[in-house]
C-alpha cells in the first residue's frame, strides 16, 4: 500500500509539472511577457524603462530558464523585481500588487468551506435517496424520489441561486444572505449560516446524479447472485442491503465523488459569482478579466493539484472498498 501511495504521489508531481509547463508556456510565451511588463511598469513607461523591468523580472531569459526559475521558486522562494517572494512562491501579481500564494491562501477557506458543506449535503441526501429508491424499486417511493432527483438536477445554479435568494432570503426570511464565511473555528454557527444557501443550491443540483447513480448501481448489485446467497443465509434485509449490497455499489459513487471534490475544491466559478463569494473560483474570474497572468497560473496550479489529489484519494478508496483491486 505504501509503495502504491509513493508511486502515485510521484505520478501526481510529474503530472503537475507537465500541467504547469503547459500553462506557463501558454501564458508567458504565447502572450504574456509584454502584458506583464506593461502592468508592472505603469502608465508612463518609456521603452528604456520597459527594458529595465523586463530584465528585473527575468523576462529576457529563455523560456526554459524562466520556467526553471518559476519551479525552483516554489520550493526556495525568489525575488521578483524588487518584491521578495517567500517559498512557496507561485509568482507575484503586478496587476494587484499581491503575492499569488498569499492571495490563494486567503481565498481558499471560502472555497473549501463551500465544497465541504456541499459535498456532505449532496452525498448524504443523494445517496440516501438513491438507496431508498433502489429498495423500493417500482413503487411510489421510487417514482417520487427519481422524479425529484430529475427535477432538481435540471435547474442551472444561476437560475436556482437567485430564485432561492428571492424565496428563502427576501420573501420567507428563513436563510441569511450568503457572504464570505467567518472562520469555522471562531464562529461555527456564523460559518454555516453564511453558506447554507449556496450549499443547498449545490446540493439540489449535484444530488440528482448521486441519487440516480446509487439507485442504478444498487439495483444492479441487488440482482447479483451473491445477494441471493446472503438471503439464503438468513441475513436480515438491513444487513443484506446496507452491509453487502451498498458496498458493492460504492465504487462508481466514489468515482463521481472524486471528480466532484476536485471540481469543487478548485473553485466553483458560477456558484461563487452567483452568491458573490470570494473564493478561488471568483479569483479565477477576476484574474482573467484583469489579464492577471501570474494569478491565473496560480489558480490553474491549485485546480490541477486538487483534481490530482482527489483522483488519488479515489484510487485509494477503490482498494479499500474492493479487495480485488488490492493486487500487487
Amino acid at each position: 500500500m505504501l509503495r502504491f501511495l509513493v508511486r502515485r504521489l510521484i505520478g501526481v508531481v510529474a503530472i503537475l509539472l507537465v500541467v504547469s509547463g503547459i500553462t506557463f508556456y501558454l501564458f508567458f510565451a504565447a502572450s504574456g511577457a509584454d502584458d506583464v511588463v506593461r502592468l508592472s511598469c505603469g502608465r508612463n513607461c518609456t521603452p528604456e524603462m520597459r527594458e529595465v523591468v523586463r530584465q528585473n523580472l527575468g523576462l529576457d531569459k529563455s523560456l526554459i530558464e524562466q520556467f526553471w526559475i518559476f519551479i525552483s521558486g516554489i520550493f526556495t522562494g525568489r525575488t521578483i523585481g524588487d518584491k521578495a517572494c517567500d517559498a512557496p512562491c507561485l509568482g507575484y501579481s503586478f496587476a494587484n500588487n499581491e503575492n499569488v500564494f498569499d492571495k490563494l491562501a486567503d481565498r481558499f477557506p471560502v472555497t473549501l468551506s463551500l465544497a465541504i458543506g456541499a459535498i456532505l449535503l449532496c452525498t448524504t441526501i443523494g445517496i440516501g435517496m438513491g438507496v431508498l429508491a433502489a429498495l423500493k424499486r417500482g413503487k411510489t417511493t421510487d417514482k417520487v424520489t427519481t422524479g425529484v432527483a430529475l427535477l432538481s438536477g435540471s435547474a442551472p445554479i444561476y437560475v436556482l441561486g437567485p430564485l432561492f435568494i428571492y424565496v428563502f432570503v427576501q420573501q420567507l426570511g428563513w436563510l441569511d444572505r450568503p457572504t464570505d464565511p467567518p472562520s469555522f473555528f471562531g464562529d461555527p454557527g456564523g460559518w454555516a449560516s453564511a453558506l447554507l444557501l449556496p450549499w443547498i443550491c449545490l446540493m439540489t443540483i449535484h444530488m440528482a446524479m448521486y441519487c440516480r447513480l446509487t439507485r442504478s448501481t444498487m439495483v444492479d448489485v441487488l440482482s447479483e447472485d451473491y445477494v441471493r446467497t446472503l438471503k439464503a443465509k438468513g441475513l436480515s434485509g438491513r444487513s443484506v442491503y446496507l452491509k453487502h449490497a451498498f458496498r458493492g455499489a460504492l465504487s462508481p459513487i466514489v468515482t463521481v465523488l472524486g471528480v466532484d471534490i476536485g471540481v469543487l475544491m478548485s473553485g466553483t466559478i458560477i456558484t461563487e459569482s452567483t452568491f458573490s463569494l470570494h473564493g478561488i473560483g471568483m479569483l479565477a474570474v477576476t484574474s482573467v478579466v484583469d489579464s492577471d497572468l501570474p494569478m491565473m497560473m496560480g489558480v490553474v496550479m491549485v485546480a490541477a493539484t486538487f483534481t490530482m489529489l482527489a483522483n488519488l484519494a479515489v484510487d485509494m478508496a477503490y482498494a479499500a472498498i474492493d479487495p480485488r483491486v488490492r493486487l500487487s
Binding site: D225, Y226, A232, R247, P323
Partner: peptide, 20 residues
C-alpha cells in the same frame, strides 16, 4: 430457518460468494 435448518449451495461459486 434459512441458513440454519435449510441451506443452499448455489451453482456458480464465483458469483455466489460476495467479492468484498
Amino acid at each position: 430457518l434459512r441458513g440454519r435448518r435449510i441451506s443452499m449451495i448455489f451453482q456458480d461459486p464465483l458469483t455466489a460468494l460476495s467479492p468484498f
